[in-house]
Write a protein that binds this DNA or RNA. Structure first.
Length: 266
DNA sequence: AAGGGCCACAACCGCCAAACA
DNA sequence: ATGTTTGGCGGTTGTGGCCCT
């Protein structure tokens, strides 16, 4: 037995929403405090007098009509944050959007697919790209440090791991093969390290081996061709730690690459 | 001015997991 | 414990507008 469709496609209207439909949906949601009433989203079209699929109503509300949703352009800071988060956690658009007030997962996803990804690729290929200033967040003491990539940013990602333990996750954007080949088949990795919120980093990156294993496994399923060598699960023990070094900066742990790979600080 | 191509965005599709009966 | 329903999510498609020739 196959999966039953969520609604009768022949009976519902599809395509762009009219002003009247928007008004009906907005009115309904405002009457119910911004949430679908007892019947849920599936019952909403009937209760609101809309000939739409419940899922379509939900999408329209969350991505467009909901108060606080922003439709203006993305700022350079948002660009950097999206790039960093995407490198760290992949296409987890809802998680990424959660760090961008007023932005929706759909909006971030569209922006990434249509514009930001191209900007980033152009940047990595050494083509002119003005993302808005190229702020350097950390003044690294090492004079040998390469310039920070423009999308580099601090990344205070606080979340829970699968065990429900609070972690503060930080990302290292890892593109390039550890030398000058910033793009292409040798694209290496995006590394995420984490620590318990109440814990401290070890001086040894692979102390987080189990977590890295898990993260790399999950990232290996993104289907992102630009990280093709992540397409198979890999053990953290395969990570070339010579790319990275820990150091201290203003009391903060800094995992810094030192062979030309872009990176993030925290 | 026309039309073909490209781009950006809204909307849809289908899968998955949680909630519920 | 199991089957069904629903909501959430990410990938993909459709479409309107803009730009270039």
């Amino acid at each position: 037995m196959g999966r039953s469709p969520c609604c009768d496609k022949a009976a519902v209207k599809r395509g762009p929403w009219s002003e009247e439909e928007d008004a009906r949906l907005r009115s309904y949601m405002e009457r119910h405090g911004g949430a679908a009433a007892g019947g849920g989203w599936m019952a909403l079209p009937r209760e609101a007098g809309l000939r739409r699929c419940g899922k379509s109503c939900r999408l329209r509300w969350l991505n467009y009509l909901r108060p606080g949703v922003r439709h203006d352009g993305f700022s350079p800071e948002e660009d950097r944050l999206i790039c960093a988060l995407h490198a760290a956690i992949g296409s987890r658009w809802s998680l990424i959007a959660a760090h961008l007030p007023g932005r929706t997962d759909n909006g971030v996803k569209n922006y990434w697919n249509t514009r930001l990804k191209k900007k980033l690729m152009a940047l990595l290929a050494g083509k002119p790209y003005n993302a808005g200033g190229g702020r350097n967040n950390v003044n690294v003491s090492s004079a040998a440090s390469p310039p920070l990539a423009p999308w580099t940013t601090t990344l205070p990602y606080t979340g829970c791991d699968s065990g429900g333990v609070d972690h503060q996750m930080r990302a290292v954007v890892g593109v390039g093969g550890g030398s000058d080949d910033m793009i292409g088949a040798s694209t290496k990795a995006a590394v995420v390290v984490s620590r318990p919120a109440n814990g401290s980093y070890s001086s040894e990156p692979l102390a987080a081996a189990t977590e890295l294993d898990e993260i790399f496994r999950s990232m290996g399923n993104t289907g992102d061709g630009e990280r093709s060598d992540l397409s198979q699960p890999q053990s953290s023990t395969e990570i070339d730690t010579s790319w990275y070094q820990y150091c201290q900066h203003d009391g903060e742990s800094v995992l810094q690459q030192h062979m030309g790979v872009p990176y993030l600080y925290w």
